[in-house]
Amino acid sequence: MKELLRFLIKYYYALLFILLESIGIVILVRNNTYQRTRFVNLAHTISGNFSKKIAVIKDYLTLHEENRQLIEENNRLYNLVKSSVSISYTDLQSEKESFQRLEYIYIPARVINNSTNKQFNYIILDKGREDGIEQDMAVVCSDGIVGVIKEVSEHFSSAISFLNRNLQISAKIKKSGHFGPLQWTGTGHQKARLKDIPHNISIELEDSIVTSGYSAIFPENYMIGRISDFSLKGGNYYEITVHLSTDFKNLRNVQVIKNLYREEQMDLEERTRND
């Protein structure tokens, strides 16, 4: 016993170091294997209010920019209305049908914490289960896509940012309709890579990239970005660099999208796969 005590006293510095470092490693590893956002959520009950206060100040400082975005969004909606009036009767008929089947519900939310400078970025929103947010819903803003909801607590939710190496979404070239997986490149905050586009179709710089809608998370034809560079990889497939239209450094107002038919679609896909 005496020996043990002497040992402890002699090496307490190294032992304490090992103890604290182990705690750190446990925290890190648990976060990586389980959903790390779970812990982040816990931490946010502590820092949530703090972040909220900062968000209020940031909101105020960016009022000008926000006004501009709202005006743009307004214009876009105006245009939609006008064009739907001037189209032909048959178009009107199909438009009507699509209105009757309401597919997506938009829930407005505010970003209260966001990072862009890590390899696995997450975004915290100020809406939670109480506001109808659920796991795997899409998050978008008026400029483009933002991410996918990962964890939900009572009043907050956390989303995997598109700037996260774990997130891959299905995107297509608007002009030709060819689709492939799109993933962030890991550097910068506006570059992503689109793969698996066959070499025999023609693409051009500045072509629009939009969501394909296959994943039942994002609605179809939602703007993602434009082609900024492309090259042939191995001769058969293009490797396309996409400039994202969302400014992840300046995220304030976002919309969470609920797909009303997601479960039905997933169920059907599941059954088809099982056969």
């Binding site: 510095y13 170091f17 705690i23 750190g24 490693i25 925290i27 790390r36 990072s115 890590k118």
Partner: peptide, 19 residues
Amino acid sequence: DIFSDTLGMHTIASTLTAF
């Protein structure tokens, strides 16, 4: 870590630096 959502990373690096 708590304020930048990186649980564990800074704890490990910072403790080592102190050590």
